[in-house]
Every structure is written in structure tokens, then in C-alpha cells.
Nucleic acid binder design. Structure first.
Length: 181
DNA sequence: ACCCCGATCGTA
DNA sequence: ACGATCGGGGTT
């Protein structure tokens, strides 16, 4: 199949760059595939919306690990959110995956051109439901797994940058990235 | 032990 | 606009 996975080096770039470059890349999780169409960055203890804003705790400890592992948490008692941890160990940062275009697993490494808005799964909770991702899938090394990884493609995509949504602090930071439909 | 509230979503 | 639903984390 000749599939290249995003590696440790990719996840050690600045988080904003990673959030931007993840657009258009394909997540593989247990034989399901989806192209990332929307991301948000959460960066460091000085970002008031970041889970690490009040320092290290049991829940956010994985954010302090090295880049390239998953961080999945439960929100509002019923939804899961998928993040990829970024940057160096002991610097808490991650990219939240907010939207995908589901595609057949067998076409995961092929080219694509169009996004029909009706086909998209927008929202971190819905996307985790689609894949079947839960907290049990947190703290997994996605650079070195056969079940859970992101396909490395060089192609870049036109996108729009906005402020992050669904938060009450840090609303001024333009750290949300969306593929232009 | 208690209380507040959240990186959401479906329904109204 | 609002309620569901529950665990994390701060406070008493």
C-alpha cells in the first residue's frame, strides 16, 4: 500500500502550523477513514482555553507528553473529543479535530477534490462517535500504530482562519482552521 | 463532601 | 434557547 504516516517530526512543529497542515490529511482508526476538514489549536499554560491553563492534572497529563500521541477526553458527560498532542515533552499543547469528511477505507490514500458539505461530519463529539473513539483511545502513539494514525500527504489546501468556538476564555485567538468548501 | 461548569449536540 | 449528563477540579 505504501502509506506514510505522520511522524514524530511532524508533531514537533509549532502547534499552529500543525493545526493548519493537518487539514486535508486522512485519519485512520480501526479500518475507518476520514479527511480532516477542521481543527483548533490549544497551546500551553498561558492559553486560557487550554486544559493545561491551571497546570498539570490527572486529566491533562497526556498533553505534557511528547508530540504524536492522542488525547481523548469526555465533555459534557456524554461526548468525546479527539486531540493530537504537539510539540516537545513538558510543553502542554494539542490540536483538536473538529470535522472530517468520511471516506471509504480502501480509498484512504487516493486523491480527492470536492467536499460536499452534506457529507461532512462537523463537531468533535460527532466525529468521535463516527470512529468509535473514546477515552480508552487516549495516550496512544499515533506515529507508531497500525490501527490509529494519520496519512502523510504533501498536498496543501485553501483554508480559512477564525477564532475558536465553544469556549468562554481565549475567544480572541484566531486558532481555528477550516478547509474552504 | 459539595458545588460548579465544561474544547457539545439534538431538539424546540 | 435550552436541557441532557457526569467527571474533573476547586473550595469548604
Amino acid at each position: 500500500m505504501n502509506i506514510k504516516k505522520l511522524n514524530y517530526k511532524f508533531f514537533n512543529q509549532p502547534t499552529l502550523k500543525i493545526a493548519e497542515k493537518l487539514l486535508g490529511k486522512t485519519i485512520i482508526f480501526n479500518n475507518k477513514a476520514g479527511i480532516i476538514v477542521e481543527t483548533e489549536a490549544y497551546i500551553g499554560e498561558n492559553d486560557p482555553a487550554c486544559h493545561a491553563a491551571r497546570g498539570k492534572t490527572k486529566r491533562n497529563a497526556v498533553m505534557y507528553e511528547k508530540g504524536g500521541i492522542s488525547y481523548v477526553y469526555l465533555i459534557y458527560g456524554m461526548y468525546h473529543c479527539l486531540n493530537f498532542v504537539t510539540e516537545r515533552k513538558n510543553f502542554p499543547a494539542a490540536v483538536l479535530i473538529r470535522g472530517i469528511k468520511p471516506i471509504p477505507y480502501n480509498f484512504a490514500n487516493s486523491d480527492f477534490k470536492t467536499y460536499n458539505k452534506k457529507e461532512l461530519i462537523l463537531g468533535p463529539g460527532k466525529l468521535c462517535n463516527h470512529f468509535g473513539i473514546t477515552r480508552e483511545h487516549s495516550n496512544e502513539d499515533i506515529t507508531n500504530s497500525e490501527k490509529f494514525y494519520v496519512i502523510d500527504t504533501k498536498k496543501e489546501f485553501e483554508h480559512t482562519t477564525t477564532t475558536r468556538i465553544g469556549i468562554s476564555k481565549g475567544t480572541n485567538l484566531p486558532w481555528r482552521f477550516i478547509i474552504d468548501i
